[in-house]
């Protein structure tokens, strides 16, 4: 009986950690586009006065590109705040930088400086803020498609993160506000870590055997794996149970 009890506890705890981990990945297949294509080599006007192009910037360190506009009354701000929070706890910050790039031609360097100040990131080396004159070509190369809504005076657009490796290739994209582990996958991809497969977004993860943990690069067992060991566990209990019950009836040999 005690053993059953322990078992149920373990099963339940698995269940709940899984539930907590199951998140809403918002998008579908669009993320899959443009992978391993070269990003457009846009000229940047960085906040710090640096005038490198995007490819030159990547060559020194892989880039995670966030496309926003400063007059956004919608998703841009929460998106950046979330990104900052997700990255705050990362100790290893050397292997990529974050480039916040405006896609609104009205944005000036001053707007970008103000944005960085409002996020308290003006002195953070990892975060770069910039505008560019080549935004249309860049948008095209990463499959980003903001639509001007003249009634609201706002752009309709996705929250997009693009991972670019040192060679200037797009390795992965994330659309929508995503959790830390998806972000980790992005960081690993810009550093050219290959994993032979991945799960499509928006799938029920509850019963999956393994959940890829990008922070460690390992697969953690999921509820499904527990299911897989269940028959063996039941057999073992059965074996011990039967062996215990019949011990009185044993004929000595």
């Amino acid at each position: 009986m005690f053993k059953h009890f322990i078992f149920i506890i373990i099963a339940l705890s698995f269940f709940f950690t899984q539930l907590a981990g199951a998140q809403i990945a918002s998008t579908g297949f669009e993320e899959e586009n443009n992978i391993y294509e070269k990003v457009y080599d846009a000229k940047l006007n960085l906040n710090n006065g640096d005038n490198r192009t995007l490819t030159q910037l990547c060559a020194s360190k892989p880039v995670i590109l966030a496309l926003i506009f400063t007059r956004c009354s919608g998703i841009c701000n929460p998106f950046l705040v979330q990104l900052k929070e997700n990255l705050q706890f990362k100790t290893d910050t050397d292997n990529f930088s974050v480039l916040v790039l405006s896609f609104d031609p009205r944005d000036t360097r001053e707007d970008m400086v103000n944005l960085s100040k409002s996020l308290n990131l003006e002195n953070n080396k990892q975060w770069l803020f910039a505008t560019t004159g080549d935004i249309e070509k860049l948008n095209l190369s990463v499959g980003f498609n903001p639509v001007w809504d003249s009634i609201r005076s706002q752009y309709d657009h996705d929250a997009l993160l693009v991972g670019i490796n040192k060679e200037g290739y797009i390795t992965k994209k994330l659309i929508g506000i995503r959790n830390k582990s998806d972000l980790e996958l992005l960081i690993r991809s810009v550093n050219d870590v290959f994993s032979p497969s991945y799960r499509l977004p928006n799938k029920n993860r509850l019963f999956s055997c393994f959940n890829y943990n990008p922070e460690t690069g390992k697969n953690t067992p999921g509820l499904g794996l527990l299911f897989l060991t269940l028959p063996a566990v039941i057999t073992l209990l059965l074996l011990l149970g039967i062996s215990y019950t019949v011990r009185h009836k044993r004929i000595l040999i």
Partner: peptide
């Protein structure tokens, strides 16, 4: 309720 194809394949061959 929809099953996970990977788990089901593992179970099938198990």
């Amino acid at each position: 309720f929809v099953n996970d194809a990977l788990l089901m394949k593992n179970l099938t061959y198990f």
